[in-house]
Design a protein around this nucleic acid. Structure first.
Lengths: 333, 333
DNA sequence: TTGAAAGCGCTACCAT
DNA sequence: ATGGTAGCGCTTTCAA
């Protein structure tokens, strides 16, 4: 690997001049620039990004922390962020936190240690206090899908409560009066908000909330199937079931098929997230759309604007869910 | 951010000693170690990974290049790699290449520029020559899902041809004699190999290959639907259809449903990859299992063994696909 | 417009 | 067992 020193030697100029043409900020005469450029080409010179970062204290990279590297939700989020960043010559360094406080914290520290200029975090387990401290320390970051009052300007959120409301309102509009609910883990903020929306919709329709009709799942497919069984096991009647995400909804669907329950004739199902596969399930899944791609893009734009001073960007911090009606829900017959 | 210098001052020892306790390699007396550790704690010291990399010429990170950041296939691959690496204290730096030669090359250079100790590449567009050069330059890397004779020791592959063979053999065993095929882009190595396997299976069964029964898709869901239409449009009869991946198979399924073609009664379908959703489609999809998780793990182990000298690892470079029979295929009635 | 030189925060070699 | 110090490859003042 050639270094800047060899380039300067071959071009017959100083280190500083080579550095200048690389960053073409300071004025350099056309002929010296030419010499440097051809020396670089001749040596196949590639700047050492590590050395650049150390010297300039700027790495042109932003750290992205997701819960998991797999799964449609995070995939879209990472894609959106990477595309947006790359178009401005910035790079994403990705790490995962596995919804575990220690891992999340270690990953954040790793990213800071790699001198990321900013962070985009999807964290669930780390405490509010930790994040507030982080902000106080001057680390610049944006939070996706988590709202913390004290650092509200760092947050990009979906109105999850509104989403839960929409889902329930939809089946209520379809005349269903007995509505079951499979929630996410109760310690997760978004799971709480979605369930709250559900309760609110029931309340607005003057229907009493029945906690027996709620099953707490873990956002995995498997817990959808388990949830259906548990709900059926209560002996309580219900004609519609709202799932706090699409994976669990798909679990409910498979289990329903095994039990010879026809969907939507005998049971209407509504999901949440609108992951890519929702439209390929059978029947196609009615769900609440989570605009994660746009939110990922917005997170990147935030960073571009705040950290890299890019102008002309319209920033927005709260996104509204909308219902995507498909074939898994229908009027109560 | 505290630096090593401040730690050494507070602990009343030299830079070198602090460095030693950080990397705890050289012998340091327990009491000095104690002093240093508490100084670190007091200052909330975090080593600067960038400076460490520059000085040591080792970044403890491996670059991972995938075609896309989303999609079940790459998600599993990244997850496997990240888990394996993290368990040894190494980190993954992820980039995407979008199956485009320029982007792939730029990403590889980015990763090299970030001083990754090694690379794990899933590249499709970059030329064999480029990769051979890379190896010659001394960059250490492993290739996933691509075989290049000259650098065969860098390759971790699935026997795609065998996979194509298995898929076709399966429907042949089920008495189907007229088998259509929706392939991936013909310029992709894996697409070619899978199609080859298909042809071989036909040949072994003494069935003439009919190029009209092949449609070239692009591995996207959409092209599955388009493929079914095109195939139907030829007027040729077929009772089974092999798809070079599950996404296209799912496209065929939705389109078949729209056309009131019952699966598997009127049409058997076989996919390839066994992505997580294959088992949640309706009917559940018969497919060729691609052990991408194990392969990702193996790629990481290769690096661990070769670059980081970890011993006791059993290395393997060619994986065998196996058929996962579900409900989308059945005996020709 | 160009060059000289002082770091950036750390590692690793050579002394002691 | 510990300290001194020369780099790692680059950026960025400050002079010329």
């Amino acid at each position: 690997m050639a270094t800047i020193y060899q380039v300067s030697e071959l071009a017959g100029v100083s280190l500083a001049t080579v550095s200048r043409v690389m960053n073409n900020n300071a004025r350099v005469s056309d002929k010296t620039k030419e010499k440097v450029l051809s020396a670089m080409a001749e040596l196949g010179y590639q700047p050492n990004a590590i050395a650049q970062s150390l010297a300039s204290n700027c790495s042109n990279s932003v750290g992205v922390l997701v819960s998991e590297l797999h799964g449609p939700f995070f995939g879209d989020m990472m894609s959106a962020i990477e595309q947006t960043l790359r178009s401005e010559g910035k790079h994403a360094i990705i790490a995962s936190g596995h919804s575990n406080a220690d891992t999340e914290q270690a990953s954040i520290e790793f990213l800071i240690g790699r001198k990321c200029d900013a962070l985009i975090l999807h964290v669930e387990a780390v405490s509010d206090g930790y994040l507030i401290d982080l902000a106080a320390k001057g680390v610049s970051f944006v939070l996706i899908n988590r709202y913390i009052e004290q650092i509200s300007t760092h947050c990009i959120c979906l109105d999850n409560q509104q989403g839960g409301y929409l889902a329930t309102q939809h089946v209520l509009d379809l005349q269903h009066a007995q509505v079951a609910y499979i929630s996410g883990p109760s310690w997760k903020q978004d799971a709480q908000a979605r369930l709250n929306g559900h309760k609110l919709a029931l309340q607005d329709a003057d229907i009493a909330f029945d906690s027996e009709l709620v099953f707490e799942g873990d956002y995995q497919q498997q817990s959808g199937s388990a949830g259906l069984d548990a709900l059926l096991g209560t002996g309580k009647a219900f004609s519609a079931i709202i799932c706090a995400n699409d994976e669990m909804a798909s679990g409910v669907m498979s289990r329903a098929r095994e039990l010879n329950l026809t969907i939507p004739d005998q049971l209407s199902i509504v999901g949440f997230d609108n992951i890519i596969y929702a439209r390929y399930l059978y029947p196609t899944l009615t769900t609440v759309d989570y605009p994660i791609f746009q939110m990922g893009k917005m997170a990147a734009n935030y960073i571009l604007a705040k950290t890299y001073d890019k102008s002309g960007l319209v920033l927005r911090d709260v996104f509204v869910p909308k219902l995507e009606v498909r074939n898994s829900s229908q009027l109560l017959s």
